[in-house]
C-alpha cells in the first residue's frame, strides 16, 4: 500500500482576527496542494482568511515537562499584569 502524504499543520487567521490559530491538519504531497486542501477543509465557510500550512515535522513545540522552567517564572512577575496597579477612578485612557 502506498504510504501517506506528509502531514501539515494548518493555521488560520480569520478576517479581522489578530493571530493565526492552529485548527488541525491535512495530508498533502506538497505545500501548494496543502494550502488548497487546508482551504477546502478549514475555511469553507469563511471569507478573507489568511492560511498557513507547515510541515508537522518542522514544528518544534515546548515540552510540557519543561513547563515549569519555560513558563513558571512569568507567574511571579505579576507586575507585568495591568491589574497589579491601582489607578484611581476618573483617570481614563490608561
Amino acid at each position: 500500500m502506498s504510504k501517506d502524504w506528509p502531514l501539515w499543520e494548518v493555521f488560520v487567521r480569520s478576517k479581522g482576527g489578530m493571530a493565526h490559530r492552529h485548527v488541525g491538519s491535512v495530508h498533502a504531497p506538497d505545500g501548494e496542494i496543502a494550502v488548497k486542501h487546508a482551504r477546502d477543509t478549514y475555511t469553507r465557510r469563511m471569507e478573507g482568511v489568511s492560511l498557513w500550512v507547515v510541515r508537522s515535522s518542522d514544528i518544534h513545540a515546548s515540552d510540557p515537562a519543561d513547563d515549569a522552567q519555560n513558563f513558571d517564572p512569568a507567574q511571579d512577575k505579576i507586575y507585568r499584569h495591568p491589574t497589579f496597579y491601582d489607578i484611581p477612578e476618573g483617570i481614563t485612557h490608561i
Binding site: M1, L7, G24, S25, V26, D40, T41
Partner: peptide, 27 residues
C-alpha cells in the same frame, strides 16, 4: 456530504496527534 468528508478529516487529524497515522487507520 462535503461536510462529512471534512468532519472525517478533523477527526483523523485529532487521532494523528495521538501517534497513529492516516495509513494505519485506513489499513
Amino acid at each position: 456530504v462535503q461536510d462529512e468528508a471534512g468532519h472525517g478529516l478533523y477527526l483523523y487529524s485529532a487521532a494523528e496527534t495521538l501517534g497513529t497515522s492516516r495509513e494505519e487507520m485506513i489499513e
